[in-house]
Simulated assay, not measured.
Amino acid sequence: MTRIVLVTGTDTGVGKTVTTAALAAAELARGARTAVVKPVQTGIGAGPGGPGAAAGAVPETPDVEEVARLAGCSVHEWTRLAAPLAPDTAARLERVALPPIAQHAARLLAMATDHDTLLVEGAGGLLVRLDDAGGTLLDLARHLRDAEAEPSVVVVCRAGLGTLNHATLTVATLRAAGFEPAGLVIGAWPASPGLAERCNLEDLPRVTGTPLLTRIPEGAGAWDPDRFRTAAASWFAAR
């Protein structure tokens, strides 16, 4: 049975893309046929004059391109929006209709026959709206569960102050919906961690009751792909 892993964050900018790439690289190292899906990407193409763009804004690299470069896996992006906002807000500004969550679930299930592992990177946090009806990554998990696909969820969090509250809220929301998180990942572990970061290594699993799978070094997304892939296999070796 195909393994479907949803990668969410406690917030935006916590390291979901690098974590997704690392998970993909680890799966590929084990010989799994692996693909990464980004249902909705925002903040791309918002150059000068683009919808929702600030003056002089420079388009960012799409997350799937970063994943493909780092992990070397197959990647799929289904909707791209220019404004660096939540997907439903960006779509409203651009007058674009977002596909419903049920359609995302159906596409993933169709892909499952050709893959051993599908990794799905969300946008921002767990309850960010991904379609026009308010559907979220949590709703996507529900649709997949209803289809007996039994998705797992990895939660990416920050290393420093404030992460305990954000991680606890995300884990509690998942559990209230009947999902036990597969684990936490610190998306950017500093080279010189402070007191809060060092304490959070113990406190994150303690207060959430969820295992800490790994901590990814800050700046790993800029590494050479060979170095990244070798490291990723060791980061998730015990999974």
Rank of each mutant, 00 (worst) to 15 (best):
E94N: 09
R107K: 12
A105P: 07
S234F: 12
L137M: 15
L161M: 14
H115E: 06
K38Q: 13
P87E: 11
V171A: 14
A82H: 10
D146K: 08
P84C: 12
P39D: 11
V153Y: 04
A22G: 14
I101L: 13
D224E: 15
L213V: 03
V64Y: 10
R129W: 06
A159G: 03
S234K: 11
H115T: 02
T214P: 01
R30G: 01
E218H: 11
P59L: 09
V5M: 07
A106E: 15
L85Y: 05
L118G: 08
P99K: 02
V40P: 13
T20G: 13
A83M: 13
A21C: 09
S152N: 00
A35R: 13
V207I: 15
A191Y: 00
C199W: 00
T210W: 13
A29V: 06
T8K: 02
G9D: 10
T210Y: 12
E202H: 11
A147K: 02
T17Y: 03
T173D: 10
V40E: 14
P205C: 05
K16A: 12
A57Q: 15
A25I: 06
A46Y: 00
A21K: 02
N165C: 13
A105C: 10
L85N: 07
V64A: 15
L130F: 09
T170S: 08
A22S: 09
L126H: 08
E218A: 14
T12E: 11
V7T: 07
A46R: 03
P48K: 12
A159D: 00
P217E: 04
E27L: 11
K16H: 09
G219F: 02
A112W: 04
L144D: 00
A147R: 05
A82G: 12
K38E: 14
A238R: 15
G187R: 00
G194T: 13
T230H: 13
P62E: 14
V155M: 10
D146V: 05
S234C: 04
R158T: 13
A141R: 00
V5R: 05
A68T: 00
A191Q: 06
F228H: 03
R215P: 00
A172N: 12
A191N: 04
A82E: 12
V156C: 07
L184Y: 10
E94P: 07
P84G: 11
D139G: 09
A167F: 10
L201T: 05
H104V: 03
A105H: 03
S192A: 15
C157V: 15
A91I: 07
G56E: 09
L161H: 05
P205G: 08
L81K: 04
T2S: 14
V155I: 14
L212P: 03
A147S: 09
A147T: 04
Q41S: 09
M1G: 07
V14S: 05
A55W: 15
A141Q: 04
A238F: 08
A24E: 01
